[in-house]
Design a binder for these strands. Structure first.
Lengths: 342, 342
DNA sequence: AGGTTATCTGCAATCGTTATCAGTAACGAT
DNA sequence: ATCGTTACTGATAACGATTGCAGATAACCT
């Protein structure tokens, strides 16, 4: 427990501190064996603080996420963890969706870490980027800020995902398609909403069931409830992230709305239990772990190549996982019936 | 990007470094305003490394968990995050269920952090506790090592939870009750198994469907599959954690076994979507966030009171959340039927 | 044995900050 | 004018490691 330093080891062996230091950094020294033994006997551990001070490196990479209990971000972190390598560690910061905590964290991180992988809360930044003032290497994951181009990024093909989801519903015959969107101030919020709207327009459908929510379970619940209360309710809904999908499903359940009989639903981001619910949930899936790993690789590349490195942009693909929560709209039958009726 | 030090600020203002340092630590100095301005102009940020070296404190508390993608541990982390306070940060280490990574992490953590909150992989430790060799303040959360008594702990009332679950099934009339258990080498694995076995014994029931698994989704799937293949399959099953519950549910679904009609299931740990599956899942729930917060509080107490502090042990309560996955066994009817038959 | 390398060694400076200590200026009281 | 008190300041020694430099030892060759 005592604080045994390199000097103690040197004295114990009878050599200078320089020799011990050299041994530690892998040089061959004369009393190799004696030193090794002394280190064990004294239970010596080099002071990380002193090393940092000399070298200017900490061997720590920070990951800043808005909400660690969101399985998506947990997977990002896990992926990054897996790619971090032997000689570095990860410092996790959970900003809890608070802009204030995000700022404070970034300020505190300076000097404590070699770089920051982050999913910023919002793209809306007044003036020159808030992040430029810190000389820290930054890699954006999942989300970027306005001037994100200047940094390396590991993003998802959001537009494509939204397009696939929307077209899937359109192909099934839906005309009244709703979207429960994330905040348009975030990258995925904006991009997914854009993809949705573009798909509707391309098919000549009006965009009349668009709700901007907040990526939270509660938000999804509220938005779904609002949609269901409309006189002319939609027949299908695209929820822009996992949490809102859960919220929406709760709302549907609470009101006894049958899926996909009365309403079809497709979510962005797969869920662990998507197959367990009734009916199994159709989703747009992506590899979050891979995305986290990519972000870490970009960071490490930047760290090893020095500040001169050009920013790189990687993107993970999305894909449609059809299960059972989407079906043709009930109106299809009604319309057919009407035709016969005439 | 540049590396502006306290000396630069001192020169810029025309005072000594000592004055700047004093200003930074809150003393009143003469050129207050000038200094403040210089700090902004030069964009000076005190070097954390140098401060650490002087003070011996880092302001960082590590949390070591086996698997961050497990929602339970994610909540633990979130709870701890919430209780960490203004002037400290959290360093997350995900050991990925690897003993090797756990050891390495702990060694690397030394000197980098002021304390460690950890959920160790296993209780089985040969010889004197592995952790004693590090002079780090340690708080165990959810799990302990053999000599855990010497450290502060924030645990769950595992025995009580298992007892409630088992008795719930017994009260419904089940005789053939299975348990898909976690590793008996872990605290929750052992304690929950003990509670299960004690409950059976108390009711005079044999313990013939006990499977020791590994707290993973795959493990739960395999265990459930094995149970279903037995000639004399159980009528109820108690799964010892969230992941294994998910795995078991998948196995049931894949084989088309009806819940709770053919088999009842109760899980330890609530799940976000427990209400969404069909039927809604009955579980033993606890407040993981609270547990994480408690662990952090114990750590902070230890840090502020110094090493002299007596270890404290806190425990979070559990409770039964009845939904729809448990019902009386079908045999009840069969038996009645058989009797009539004779 | 002598000379020339090739290795290894210790000394001391350095990283950026804080703590100690002695010192100076300002001010009021005598 | 002198003294004592208060309130601040600057120089300097740590904190524990790394590293360039110069010197010492060993190894090698003729």
């Amino acid at each position: 427990m005592s604080t045994v330093t390199i000097t103690d080891v040197a004295k114990h062996v009878g050599v200078s501190v320089a020799t011990i230091s050299r041994h530690l950094s892998g040089f061959t020294v004369r009393n190799e064996e004696k030193i090794r033994q002394a280190i064990i006997d004294l239970n010596y551990r080099p002071s990380a603080a002193a090393r940092n001070l000399k070298s200017g490196r900490t061997g720590i990479i920070a990951i800043v996420v808005p909400d660690i209990t969101n399985p998506f971000f947990a997977s990002i972190v896990e992926g990054a963890e897996g790619a971090v390598g032997e000689d570095r560690m990860i410092l996790l910061v959970n900003t809890g969706d608070s802009r204030q905590r995000e700022e404070k964290a970034l300020a505190q991180l300076f000097g404590r870490v070699d770089g920051v992988i982050m999913a910023p809360l919002t793209e809306d930044e007044e003036g020159p980027s808030f992040f430029s003032q810190f000389g820290l290497p930054i890699v954006f994951v999942d989300r970027v800020t306005q001037d994100g181009e200047k940094f390396s990024t590991a993003l998802t093909d959001n537009a494509k995902g939204a397009t696939i989801a929307t077209n899937h519903l359109i192909a099934l015959g839906h005309k009244k398609i709703a979207m429960i969107s994330g905040p348009l101030s975030t990258t995925p919020g904006k991009k997914r909403a854009d993809g949705f709207k573009a798909s509707l327009k391309e098919s000549g459908l009006p965009c009349q069931y668009f709700i901007e929510s907040d990526f939270s379970e509660e938000g999804g619940y509220a938005a779904m409830s609002a949609l269901l209360e409309r006189e002319d309710a939609p027949t299908a809904v695209f929820t822009a992230n996992n949490l809102m999908t859960i919220g929406a499903l709760h709302a549907l359940r609470d009101r006894g709305v049958a899926v996909p009989n009365q309403i079809s639903i497709i979510g962005f981001d797969d869920l662990d239990f998507a197959e367990l619910i009734n009916p199994p949930l159709t989703v747009i899936a992506r590899d979050a772990r891979l995305q986290g790993a990519l972000a870490m690789e970009l960071m490490i590349k930047q760290l090893t190549n020095g500040a001169s490195t050009q920013p790189e942009h990687s993107m993970v693909d999305v894909q449609l996982v059809e299960r059972g929560s989407c079906a043709p709209p009930r109106e299809m039958q009604t319309i057919a019936f009407n035709k016969v009726d005439r």
